[in-house]
């Protein structure tokens, strides 16, 4: 399988994620300092976690004086989807990725980094991956710092508009593949239907959102893996 291993192609592909992250992390910075964390604490959370949903869920537990078990379970449930993504990405990486690289790249295997790497034709190599994760990590950290230190200077209307940016990126990743490949489109529709069920139907909507994400996505993917399995290319 052909391997993409150019650092600068990684940088190019990572830049849009970086810009998206600056705006989302900015919102997180405002949220965390408003919740009572210091600028330094807020920045440290972003630099060591690099995940939006988990951080948003973690901050109220920390500032509200929650238990460590509560924090651990919340992070586990919300972030468990990354385990699926890591298995998937392990199939996508080329021979240039050494063991030590796996330990480092895993640290910034975010939803968006994973999605961009997955959408590449062929295998992805270590130089490409380091380029891909570099600017999103910096953008996430820098955006958090900006939001934490100076977020309240922005009008509410701008903060509201930035709230949709990360979802816009998700849409931009899913739509082209759904347009190209009909089974993917149907899988996406089924996943969305399940997601709405788990959001609006009583009892089911009390399932923690981290679990709901996994249940909905895994069910839709399993159904379509069974109904429309992908072509397996020999010799890869």
């Amino acid at each position: 399988m052909k391997e993409i291993n150019n650092f600068f192609r990684g940088i190019t592909d990572g830049l849009p994620i970086c810009v998206g992250y600056i705006s989302v992390a900015f919102a997180f910075g405002i949220f965390a300092t408003d919740s009572g964390l210091s600028v330094l604490e807020t920045l440290l959370i972003s630099m060591t976690n690099v995940t939006s949903a988990g951080q948003l869920a973690g901050v109220p537990i920390i500032t509200g004086g929650g238990t460590l078990i509560e924090l651990a379970v919340a992070q586990f449930v919300i972030n468990l989807r990354y385990a699926l993504m890591s298995v998937s990405l392990s199939q996508k990486i080329g021979k240039s990725v050494r063991m030590i690289d796996r330990f480092i790249i895993a640290f910034v295997n975010t939803d968006e980094v994973f999605a961009v790497a997955s959408a590449k034709e062929g295998a992805v190599g270590r130089n490409y991956l380091y380029g891909l994760i570099l600017t999103p990590f910096l953008g996430w950290s820098f955006g958090t710092l900006l939001g934490a230190a100076a977020g309240n200077v922005l009008p509410a209307s701008v903060v509201s508009a930035l709230g949709i940016a990360i979802y816009g990126m998700f849409v931009a990743i899913v739509i082209p593949e759904a347009k190209k490949d009909r089974p993917t489109l149907l899988c996406v529709i089924m996943a969305i239907a399940l997601s709405c069920v788990f959001t609006y139907v009583p009892v089911l909507n009390s399932v923690p959102s981290g679990f709901a994400i996994i249940i909905c996505a895994a069910a839709a993917s399993a159904v379509f893996a069974f109904v429309s399995p992908v072509e397996v290319k020999e010799g890869e």
Binding site: A53, R81, L84, M85, V87, S88, Q91, D111, F114, A115, S118, A119, Y167, F170, V171, I173, V174, E177, A178, P183, T184, C187, V188, A191, I192, L194, S195, C196, T199, Y200, A212, I213, C216, A217, A218, A220, S221, A222, F224, A225, F226, S228, P229, V230, V232
Partner: peptide, 21 residues
Amino acid sequence: RFILSFLHYIPYAVLSVMTIP
């Protein structure tokens, strides 16, 4: 083949679920 297919669909399914609603 089943696991490979499952892993092919997973990224798009996860992102869709996280986006809507």
